[in-house]
Amino acid sequence: MAAVSVREHPGPRPHLRLRLRPQGVLLILCGSALLRIALFSELYLRYVKEGLRPYLVVSGGVLIALGLLGLLARTHDEDEDEDEGYEEEGGDGESDDEAADPDRPDAHAHAHDHAHTRNPRIAWLLTAPALALLLFPPPALGSYSAEREEARVSAQGAGTFPELPAGDPLDLTLGAFASRAEWDTGASLKGRTVRLTGFVTRDDDGAWSVARLRVTCCAADAQALKVEIRGEDAPAADTWVTVTGTWHPTGKPGTDAARPVLDAVSVKRTKAPSDPYEKR
């Protein structure tokens, strides 16, 4: 009776392997981008409100941790590939000669399947957007968004507003100026010199406005606030400016004719603030 030689399986050898996988790299890049904008800078203010910063930091840390676990963990496919080297000779499994035979009809298909399982090279293309997000964070919303949405004000209906603080020029938010210009029957803006800060938007008819976006939670729910500027030439679109001037009445408060308009006496360029959105 012919002897059958059997190679004993040495058993599992648990250890961690560091192997680059697109899934793990993608998670690490996304997590690093979140930490860059939220932990190491104030870029997150372009996209969300200040109070959401801790959640962004925690999310970035979790994504990086999951990505590292994905790079270190051994996959089920790797374990099966290692076990293929410990098959019985002369048993029910394939012999070494059979496995190495290139003329076997299924040999090419077997190698092709393993090539696709172990080398998903096209999946690395998914890391390109994440790498771009890490290196080049998107800018804050600007004139493109403001031009496509009408200003919404917090006041509900016409009425008398509280008196403004003493002193000219008076710094006002665009929301406060627009509300009083459109709804204040007491004309509290009359005779006052105000100062507004925002970015420039330009209309097709040649008119221009100073604008700012107001967010409730994040940039996805941004609302545009615009004040038309008269008496001064328009800077380039998206330029941040501080405009000083006086209120220009356009119609009865509470009607469609009442619009926020400012007669400018000076327009000065200014640096964009770290938080480009206007608070409620």
Rank of each mutant, 00 (worst) to 15 (best):
A2H: 13
A2I: 11
V4N: 04
V4D: 08
V4A: 11
S5P: 00
E8W: 01
P12G: 14
R13H: 11
H15E: 00
R21D: 03
P22R: 02
S32V: 11
A33V: 06
A38H: 04
F40M: 09
L43A: 08
R46W: 13
R46K: 15
Y47M: 12
K49P: 01
L56G: 03
V58Q: 10
S59N: 10
L63H: 03
I64G: 08
L69Q: 10
E82K: 05
E84V: 06
E87K: 08
E88K: 01
G90K: 06
G91Y: 02
G93I: 00
E98F: 07
D103H: 12
D106T: 13
H108N: 09
A111G: 12
H112V: 10
R118A: 15
P120Y: 14
P129E: 04
A130S: 15
P138E: 02
E147I: 10
R148I: 00
E149D: 14
R152K: 10
E163A: 14
A166N: 11
G167K: 07
L170K: 02
L172P: 04
L172Q: 01
T173Q: 04
T173I: 05
R180C: 06
R180Y: 02
A181P: 02
A187D: 09
S188K: 04
S188N: 03
L189P: 07
K190H: 06
R192S: 05
R195G: 10
T197F: 04
G198C: 11
F199E: 15
V200Q: 00
R202V: 01
S209P: 01
S209A: 03
S209E: 02
V210N: 00
R212T: 01
T216W: 02
T216I: 10
C217M: 10
C217N: 10
C218Q: 06
A220H: 06
D221K: 05
A222G: 09
Q223E: 13
A224S: 15
E228G: 02
I229P: 01
E232W: 10
T239S: 15
V241Q: 03
T242E: 15
T242N: 02
T242W: 01
T246E: 03
T246F: 02
W247V: 04
P249R: 04
G254R: 00
G254N: 06
T255C: 03
D256T: 14
A258T: 13
V261S: 07
R269F: 00
T270C: 04
K271T: 14
P273Y: 02
S274K: 12
D275L: 06
R280Y: 08
